[in-house]
Nucleic acid binder design. Structure first.
Ligand SMILES: Nc1ccn([C@H]2C[C@H](O)[C@@H](COP(=O)(O)OP(=O)(O)OP(=O)(O)O)O2)c(=O)n1
Ligand SMILES: [Mg+2]
Length: 1064
DNA sequence: ATCCTCCCCTAC
DNA sequence: TAAGGTAGGGGAGGAT
């Protein structure tokens, strides 16, 4: 009865990576890039002589082992005027590849290049003339017999195509000369080829034929001004129509929504449980999953049936078990739920007459574009898929495969609506849920499946229940979704995410499929895995496939199972290798992902970018900045780091790529800078972002006409002052209100009825149960926390515990002690680690005392401005906050202060960057929401440890201003001064060819001087002693630091250049 | 060792 | 004519 795990017959490996093939035209041109070092080394090798022109204009790469050696060949190339390319990357144009042997993967990669034997170099040098490379062409021998006929055919075609003369004078050698390729103007060569290439299409022939349709359109200046990035409202219009933009946006919204629901639930359960005993828990009102639907009837505590009591008491425990321990992985029940051809399914509701036909959703409608539309297909119906049509293909490609194809327009609003209904239904059944995308989610339904099983056993007494309750539940969910949305979903079920996802493929269309850990032996699971390709595994795509093919000889899971874990790690990296090793065996221990809070906000447009001049580019950049700012505002965030990304047409790409107004093959560049606002840390400002972005863009000095894509990313995010700071966004708001329409439902009686139940009002057992796992973690942490807190004064201790739970958790996260074990450290306490026991010194006591006083004051009366300032809190900002937040802020700041003063090692929960859990204690890390509200002012003043951006005067001034300004009430930290000095010293270093290094250092010092005079002018002359007041004391410390740095710099300058730096 | 930065890669 | 966006995992390699 159990489903077979053997591969289905029928379609199989014809896995053409269509998306990869057309995606940005970058194909599998995968090459690990290394930094420029080698190229520099190389430059030093060059000996420009008079007759070194043999290889002039040629860029030659040497692949793999060669005879003679790479070094020798390199020397020959370089000495004879050629450019040696140590690595193939997409930014350099290679003309020839020299090799003795080629792996099949490489052969594919180099398919369209001139591949020659080393003897070509040697003989050319010997004869002092450039010999025809064709005579030395490397011919790849397919390792096995295999019918590679087509490929060889293509090679032949290629060599013919490139057979045209090679002039030694060519500076940029075109890899492909198009003239011999017969193509009509509407059949795009790139797509033609990718269609029947069984490998990812490499650089297509004739890639340098400019798209004539596009050229024609762009030739009209008026058209260009209204239809491309030159248009004043291009950004807005573009985003209204970009499906990928919607996909990304929706995903973020859904994740935020779910995080919010979970957070609330967690809090509720904590509160209840921590204050009550198990009995009380039985009466605990369960909060519905939907944030909006929260007030629900309290469970009529009619613990009537044994069953319900068991549920109440046991379930949290099972949930607990599920949550953390890996050895219980086999017990989880994960469902992967995914709409069948989502956009098409939705579209069919309003276009019922197209049902059963090959249909796609794309922008181009009807006969628009004729047979040559490059419009991308977002979703194809299963009828269309039978003909080979795939999501992501261009319409013209699809028309070639299926001439009768029909199109439907996008209906973005409805996608979102239906998605919300879908999620609402899933939430009714979820212990935990991960939003994968608008049409797809991973749901942990362990609890409900268990419950169903139990009740089955009850009712069907003494039957060894070979009944698949998971599938039963899946079918019920499918029915629910069908009734609510009119669309089919498919569900894959398994005990882990990997298998659930793979099961979904089997389930589709309109079905469910269960890979049961109890019914399937591990051998069967291996058998199930074996026919898959590496690209079927989540997280492994075309680049992974190339690596596998290249370095391991196969991308098939059944073959890869023979590779050792160590080898996989070598090839794919330590993390990915281990993951892959598990995946190949059907093992996947990953928990469902939770939204950890936003870390960056960005917008990119890589379509329709066609500037005529700088002005257009500038205007566009400001449009983008405005968009980014809007997104930040919606999130209530701002950030202090900006990254600009630019796509520039690759030298080898045609002016107009095959895809209409696409970006084509591009080189990509990024540059980042700190983002400063005039008044300090205000909310974001689109003009300021625009200026930064434009300045960065300009710094590349690219021809505006060559630009093909622009992106602005903001990082190091912080909540805006006074902002609620929750994850709720405008989008989430919409979602929430939508959620209200769905009544909270239930599940306790769910097993008694098969219809979508009406008793929704009765109970809410459907809600997520209290998360015992989390609770447990929290308790564990409580211990640690109390330890830490014990170093606080009693008043602080009290206040700490009076804080709202979530705030406490935040503080806890934010300030963890690394040193908790009583390591008997050396009496010297410089190594900040493990110095705990030395702490209770007099100074710390007095510190406590002082804080106590301040704490008391802050509780009873308004804290004074000067006190605030002493904590580097801006009084104006402070008093504008709600009182609770004020308190939180005070405690937060004081905790931080005190601990630092005591030389504790404080691990700041990188509020800005809580990436990897570096958590030294408490292994299962409690996942927390982002800080709710935080001051912009007392930012952890982190100068050291981060890259200093000292590219231009503006940045220099900003960086120093920021530093001095933030610390103006404090003496500068030695560490920061040292860090700063080190950078300056490097500027005037001997080894670096730093042109302008001295100037830069001088500029820095000058600006520093300006600031010091501004703040502490009077102290400049005073030597040591006689600090009249605190301010003067601080000022003198700053001046001392300045003089110290100046002395060091002077010393080094004297050595390296003679003379000293003049600041005059 | 562990961090940080600057990428690449992946997914829908 | 079409609307190839985006957040986040992870790795390489340098800094600390
Ligand atoms: N290259 C792509 C892939 C997907 N999508 C959009 C349209 C899809 O309908 C939706 C969901 O993507 P899926 O991968 O789930 O594909 P479908 O739902 O269309 O088909 P199925 O899930 O049945 O395979 O995302 C898109 O716009 N472009
Ligand atoms: Mg789908």
């Amino acid at each position: 009865m159990r489903p077979s795990l053997l591969p289905l017959g029928g379609d199989e490996a014809g896995d053409i990576d269509i998306y990869g093939a057309s995606h940005f035209g970058q194909f599998g041109e995968y090459m690990r890039r290394k930094r420029a070092k080698l190229q520099i080394q190389n430059a030093t090798l060059t000996q420009p002589g008079e007759d070194t022109v043999l290889f002039r204009g040629l860029s030659i790469h040497i692949n793999g082992w060669t005879q003679p050696s790479v070094q020798e060949l390199r020397q020959l190339i370089v000495q004879n005027g050629g450019i040696y390319l140590p690595y193939l990357d997409k930014k350099s144009l290679v003309t020839h590849v020299v090799t003795c042997t080629l792996t099949p993967a490489k052969a594919r990669e180099f398919k369209n290049m001139k591949i020659v034997l080393p003897t070509w170099i040697i003989n050319s040098v010997k004869e002092k003339k450039l010999l025809p490379w064709q005579d030395y062409r490397y011919v790849h021998q397919p390792p096995v017999e295999s019918a590679q006929g087509t490929r060889i055919e293509q090679r032949t075609l290629l060599s013919f195509a490139t057979n045209s003369k090679i002039l030694a004078t060519e500076t940029k050698l075109r890899v492909n000369t198009n003239t011999t390729i017969p193509l009509t103007e509407d059949s795009q060569p790139a797509e033609l080829q990718s269609k029947h290439a069984e490998t990812k299409a490499s650089i297509p022939y004739a890639a340098d034929i400019s798209n004539r349709n596009a050229q024609k359109a762009l030739a009209n200046p008026e058209w260009r001004r209204t239809h491309t990035s030159a248009a004043p409202d291009f950004v807005e219009g573009y985003y209204r129509n970009s499906r990928l933009h919607y996909l990304s946006t929706w995903k973020a919204e859904l994740r935020a929504l779910i995080a919010e629901a979970q957070e609330q639930l967690e809090q509720d359960s904590h509160t209840t449980i921590s204050e009550t005993d198990v009995h009380a828990e039985m009466h605990m009102p369960r909060t519905d999953v939907l944030p909006t639907a929260n007030m629900h009837e309290i469970e009529p505590k009619k613990a009537g049936s044994t069953e319900s009591v068991i549920d109440k008491i046991m379930l949290p425990h099972s949930a607990n078990v599920i949550r953390d321990q890996t050895n219980n992985d086999m017990q989880r029940v994960i469902m992967h739920c995914d709409f069948d051809c989502f956009f098409v399914s939705v579209g069919l509701i309003t276009h019922p007459h197209l049902r059963g036909k090959p249909v796609v959703v794309c922008h181009s409608q009807g006969t628009q574009g004729g047979a040559s539309s490059t419009s991308e297909i977002a979703s194809a119906s299963y009828e269309a898929r039978k003909q080979g049509v795939k999501n992501g293909m261009s319409l013209q490609q699809a028309r070639r495969l299926c001439p009768t194809i029909m199109t439907m327009p996008y209906e973005f609003e409805r996608y979102k609506q239906l998605s919300l209904q879908f999620y609402n239904i899933l939430l009714q059944h979820a212990d935990d849920i991960q939003a994968v995308s608008v049409d797809e989610a991973l749901v942990d339904v362990t609890r409900e499946v268990r419950k169903l099983s139990r009740s089955h056993r009850c009712h069907v007494s003494s039957q060894p229940c070979n009944h698949d309750t998971a599938t039963e539940l899946a079918e019920r969910i499918r029915t629910q979704v069908r009734q609510a949305t009119g669309c089919e979903i498919s569900i894959g079920i398994a005990h882990n995410i990997l298998l659930a996802r793979l099961a979904t493929r089997r389930a589709k269309p309109a079905g469910s499929f269960h890979i049961s850990s109890s019914n399937q032996t591990s051998a069967e699971i291996l058998q199930f895995m074996s026919p898959h390709d590496i690209t079927d595994l989540p997280g492994f795509g075309s680049a992974a496939k190339s690596k596998a093919l290249d370095k391991l000889g196969s991308s098939n899971v059944g073959k890869l199972i023979e590779i050792s874990k160590a080898r996989l790690c070598e090839v794919f990296g330590p993390g990915n290798g281990a993951t892959l090793w598990g995946f190949i065996r059907g093992i996947d221990k990953r928990p469902l992902e939770r939204d950890g809070g936003r870390r960056s906000v960005s917008c990119d447009i890589n379509y329709g970018i066609r500037f005529a001049d700088q002005d257009e580019a500038e205007r566009f950049t400001y449009q983008m900045a405005k968009e980014v700012k809007r997104r930040l505002d919606d999130l209530g965030m701002h950030g202090s780091l900006i990254t600009l990304k630019v796509l520039k047409r690759s030298a080898s790409a045609p002016i107009e790529p095959p895809k209409f107004l696409g970006c084509g093959k591009c080189d990509s560049f990024t540059k980042q800078a700190p983002l400063y606002f005039p008044g300090g840390r205000a909310a974001s400002d689109d003009q300021v972002i625009g200026q930064h972005a434009w300045r960065l863009l300009n710094s590349f000095h690219f021809d505006p006409q060559e630009l093909r894509g622009i992106g602005i990313q903001i990082q190091r995010l912080q909540p805006n002052i006074g902002s609620k700071g929750t994850n709720s966004t405008a989008g989430a708001q919409t979602l929430l209100s939508f959620g209200k329409e769905i009544s909270s439902p239930s599940s306790r009686h769910a097993n008694s009825n098969k219809t979508v139940d009406q008793h929704g009002k009765q109970r809410k057992s459907t809600s997520i149960p209290p998360q015992m796992g989390v609770l447990r973690d929290e308790r564990k942490q409580d211990v640690a926390r109390d330890l830490e807190i014990s170093t606080l004064s009693q008043a602080e201790f009290n206040m700490y515990h009076a804080l709202p739970r979530d705030v406490k958790r935040e503080l806890d996260e934010e300030f963890r002690y690394l040193a908790q074990s009583p390591v008997a450290g050396p009496s010297k306490v410089t190594s900040t680690k493990g110095a705990i026991e030395e702490v209770p010194t007099r100074s710390s006591l007095s510190l406590q005392k002082r804080n106590l006083d301040q704490m008391l004051k802050s509780k009873t009366q308004r804290i004074s401005e000067s006190e605030l300032r002493s904590l580097s809190i801006d009084p104006v900002v402070f008093f504008s906050l709600p009182e609770e937040v004020q308190q939180e802020q005070l405690v937060r700041t004081k905790l931080s202060r005190e601990r630092e003063d005591r030389h504790y090692t404080v691990i700041r929960k990188k509020v800005l960057k809580p990436r990897k859990s570096s958590a030294p204690l408490a292994e299962p890390r409690l996942r927390l929401s982002r800080p709710k509200a935080e001051f912009g002012a007392p930012q952890p003043p982190q100068l050291a440890g981060r890259k200093l951006h000292l590219e231009d005067t503006q940045e220099i001034q900003n960086a120093i201003s920021d530093w001095v300004d933030r610390y103006r009430h404090w003496t500068p930290k030695e560490k920061d001064v040292g860090f700063f000095m080190k950078h300056l010293l490097r500027c005037v270093g001997d080894n670096s060819m730093s042109d302008g290094g001295i100037e830069k250092a001088t500029a820095v010092l000058k600006w520093w001087l300006v600031l010091l005079r501004r703040y502490w002018g009077p102290q400049e002359e005073k030597q040591e002693q006689g600090a009249v007041n605190e301010v003067a004391e601080v000022g003198e410390a700053w001046w001392r630091a300045f003089r110290g740095v100046k002395v060091q710099l002077d010393a080094k300058v004297r050595v390296n250049f003679g003379g000293s730096i003049s600041l005059r």
